[in-house]
Design a binder for these strands. Sequence first.
DNA 1: CTTATGACCTGCAAGC
DNA 2: TGCTTGCAGGTCATAA
Length: 298
Amino acid sequence: MPELPEAEVVRQGAHRWFAGRTIADVVVHDRRIVRPVGINPAHYAEALRGVTITSVSRRGKFIWFLLDDGCCLLLHLGMTGQVRASEGPDLVRHERLRCTFTDAGHALCYADQRLFGYLQYQELVDVDGLPDGVFPDQPGLVPASVTHIARDPFDPAFDALAVARRLKTKKTTIKRALLDQRIMSGVGNIYADEALWRAKVHYDRPCAALTVKKLVEIVGHCTEVMTASLSQGGTSFDAMYVNVNGASGYFSRSLAVYGQQGKPCDRCGGTIVREKFMNRSAHRCPRCQPRPRKRVVS
DNA sequence: CTTATGACCTGCAAGC
DNA sequence: TGCTTGCAGGTCATAA
């Protein structure tokens, strides 16, 4: 389910439910959900038993539980990952891992239909010395496998102008670049399409053909559309129930192009189209976002 | 450095 | 009623 707003909703909920609690046991129902690939799931229970979760942090779509042993438990939701706080012993649908606590309160359940998500117990690494993410009390520390992920627009240290300048130097096209988590993280297929519609830019425009000013605008649209989504999706987490069906909760009703193929564009009335792109799809309004003319190579 | 492709998975909807 | 096909929010490895 996750792009940045969904990941942040999960982080907030996980922080509220699980921060300050001490792990009693970890049961792995499907070993494909823990990394590194091939690790004995029993090692997770051994390493985590008695460890306390101090807080839950995030960069882009990567979430991690900070632990009082100095390490962390990294969580990526893949396409269909969900975190639940579960009261009874019954397994939730697609549950792959359960973590129980010494206070015998709600357990942490990780459910994932497609198994693209994973958890990984690992070390923290100091990336750039700048305060990291949502919890500046953990300066610059991110999980070892997250070091290549750039800051996201919800990060206090996010620098939109720097991102725009970086985009300008890329040899690739704009949507590809927006989806590249090393430049700016958190944007996925839905919000890339939404931001480009707002900016009236075709997904195949070369980055270098756009002005830095226009790129700043696009980055701003990414930020705005994800902020709007967060403000509407943030309510559904108390029950730890997240709509499996994408674009969390109510925001799916506000989408201008994603999944709207065949419907009229809210701005000009043109018919929204869906096109093949990078083995998935791109949505756009053919009138607001016309295909770029072939560039004349000079 | 870049792009393109496939791999990793399950399940749902649509078409025949 | 089945069967097949296509499609789904992400990331990573590999090859060219």
